[in-house]
Design a protein around this nucleic acid. Structure first.
Length: 291
DNA sequence: CACTTGACCTGTCCGC
DNA sequence: TGCGGACAGGTCAAGT
């Protein structure tokens, strides 16, 4: 469920909280797949390394270490990265207590613990789909997803988007924009929201959508993601930022999880269907199949 | 090759 | 109340 905006909000929090700190240790708790890294690599390239920077690529988070290696993190659906300073809340602030979804840490969903100078970063992941991997920074391409990742929405143009999506002419539009090779970082929430904004039916075939509307779709992806980042991302059930706080974007969502409510644009009741195996919310009146 | 479907997981919710 | 099954969705492997 964490998509580009949620990962970006986590990244910004972590930059504030952990860049400059030195790693004391990292270990998995009863979930080796969450940290597919050998003990000797941990000893040689993670322990005693300093955290120099944190980047994001699509939904991937990249923590750079002074050893020349980096930690690559994918939160998948239920991953959380929550920092607790050893000095307690007074040092960094715990945020508004009502915003916090997190209690004592580690909890039963904690899969990996990263011990730092001044605190601890907990990787919680209820469903164990996420992971933390280690790669030399020059070999990020060994992560398949990284290698095939399409352009960043905020650093590309509608021309890049249209060129990429036209490689999938026979696909429906919804699975096409969920394809990370077409554009990086779109997941189910922002797919539904941007298709609503650009008035495209999620089952439209890519080949039936004109360039004007594809351009509008790209601009809608950018717009909904920027709005979401401004509201701290979307908390559907699990998502929290690096301080354990929820995001509030779903209050502003127009269709996602609003089936049986009226469309904010035309009043027609929003439907929920399955497209390419994903729950899909749309307005059956103002989202059309073609131009 | 293009595209679709199932597996990976666990917690929650629904109906009986 | 307890229990089975459906559902949630990001990505990869396998299937059409």
């Amino acid at each position: 469920m964490p998509e580009l905006p949620e990962v970006e909000v986590v990244r910004r929090g972590l930059v504030e909280l952990i860049v400059g700190q030195t790693v004391k240790n990292i270990y998995a708790i009863e979930s080796p797949k969450s940290l597919p890294v050998t003990q000797s690599d941990i000893n040689n390239f993670i322990k005693k390394a300093k955290i120099t920077d944190i980047n994001r690529r699509g939904k991937l988070l990249i923590i750079y270490l002074s050893s020349g290696y980096c930690l690559i993190i994918h939160l998948k659906m239920t991953g959380q990265l929550v920092y607790r300073s050893s000095a307690g809340a007074k040092k960094f602030g715990a945020g508004h207590p009502n915003d916090s979804l997190i209690g004592q840490l580690p909890d039963r969903s904690t899969r990996v613990v990263l011990e730092l100078d001044d605190g601890t970063l907990y990787f919680n992941d209820q469903r164990k789909f996420g992971w933390i991997n280690l790669k030399p920074k020059d070999l990020l391409d060994e992560i398949k997803l990284y290698k095939t990742m399409g352009p960043e929405p905020f650093e590309s143009t509608e021309h890049d988007f249209i060129r990429n999506i036209k490689k999938r002419v026979n696909s429906k539009i919804k699975p096409a924009i969920l394809d990370q090779a077409v554009i990086a970082g779109v997941g189910n929430i922002y797919a539904d929201e941007s298709l609503w904004m650009s008035r495209i039916h999620p089952e439209s075939k890519v080949k039936d959508i004109g360039e004007t509307r594809l351009k509008k779709l790209f601009l809608s992806v950018v717009e909904v993601m920027q709005l979401s980042i401004a509201h701290g991302g979307s908390t559907d059930r699990n998502y929290v930022n690096a301080k354990g706080q929820r995001g509030s974007y779903l209050k502003f969502a127009q269709v996602f999880r609003r089936d049986n409510e009226p469309c904010p644009r035309c009043g027609t009741i929003i439907k929920k269907i399955k497209v390419a195996g994903r729950g899909t919310h749309f307005c059956p009146k103002c989202q059309v199949m073609d131009e």
